[in-house]
Design a protein around this nucleic acid. Structure first.
Lengths: 189, 189
DNA sequence: CCGCGTAGTGACAGTGACTGACGCTACGAA
DNA sequence: TTCGTAGCGTCAGTCACTGTCACTACGCGG
């Protein structure tokens, strides 16, 4: 069949997303995904380590992009501002994949096993962002906290963007970070 | 009353923990766990929904205890203070299970699949604590934030308590929450 | 134009997690 | 004693995932 393995990879992702959305994650077999993509089950596992990972393929690239942005940010900015700029830049790529991101989020929300994987990815992302901040001289615990809260805020903004189609991801990002600042300004009680 | 299948359940947990620690999680089969516990593999899955869950059996009880403590706390206390008191009370039970908790943490830290489950349990715990706080009238987003941060702090204190045997869990809890207050008092940078 | 290495794949066998169904047995209540 | 039932054993089956080998289409140097 086709010489480029990248082609089969994309077909597998598309087929998996469709089937997960149609029948649900648990009632979809990897053999069915492979069949719809026009390959064998064995090829599925050559491209993806397991049945869940097929929905999280972009995470490694996104993580690399974000940490690179953090590293390149101008000096003198507070941690959350550095992160917001990185999110805005990466958001352009995310915004182009809306037709994939939308059903993807719905499927993840409906499947405990996928929510679990999503949490693990979020943790890995937080760790990577914290390391990138520390490399810029941000204090240890502050870097961890900023990375954690920052990613959670991005995650939240992305969800809001999916639900509210007519506004841009940037708008949702700005709003979410504004909410965060307001929340932090409250003196608790 | 049931014909004490609770006995088999405890033997299964003990056997699983031992085998995971000896050979590692991936190289332990559920059949081996069952054999060491003196039952069949089928019985393992009657007590636990999957191979991971056998290490997280106390979580539901702990969650119930904590949310009950939150509900019963006196009025007028700030959210984090309510949580700290709940953690102290629940900590007494945790402290009695040190011989189980110690190898358990080591195995979880060494196994990606178990770390994933651990994150999911933490998320469930945060949600439950946030709901308990909201039931007391704590504002929506503040409840979520306090629950999240509070549980993370408890988790951290429990880890420190495992590593440093000679000090009590209460001491570690107080120290962790003191650190948290200091961190919050810093005006960023 | 011709071998020749290699990346992507198909085919097949095998392991192990997990499920459903059925029957047995010990215990407790009537 | 009898009967209901909870816990368990046994067996068969599905499906996620892995190791291995052979094949085929290209890419490259000759």
């Amino acid at each position: 069949m086709p010489r480029s393995g990248e082609e089969a990879r994309r077909r597998l992702q598309q087929a998996a997303l469709e089937l997960y959305a149609e029948r649900g994650f648990d009632r979809t077999t990897t053999a069915e995904i492979a069949a719809r993509a026009g390959v064998t089950e064995r090829t599925f596992f050559r491209h993806f380590p397991d049945k869940r990972e097929v929905l999280f393929d972009g995470e490694a690239t996104l993580r690399a992009d974000l940490t690179a942005s953090v590293a390149e940010a101008p000096d003198g900015l507070p941690p959350l501002e550095i992160l917001l700029r990185a999110f805005r830049k990466a958001g352009r790529i995310v915004e182009g994949n809306r037709s994939f991101a939308e059903p993807r989020l719905a499927v993840i929300a409906a499947t405990p096993a996928l929510r679990e994987r999503d949490l693990a990815k979020a943790a890995a992302m937080s760790d990577a962002l914290a390391a990138a901040l520390r490399a810029r001289g941000v204090a240890d615990r502050l870097a961890a906290l900023a990375a954690h809260v920052g990613w959670a805020t991005f995650h939240h903004a992305a969800g809001a963007w999916i639900e509210e189609a007519d506004r841009s991801l940037d708008e949702h990002l700005d709003e979410a970070f504004a909410d965060l600042r307001a929340l932090a300004a409250e003196t608790g009680g």
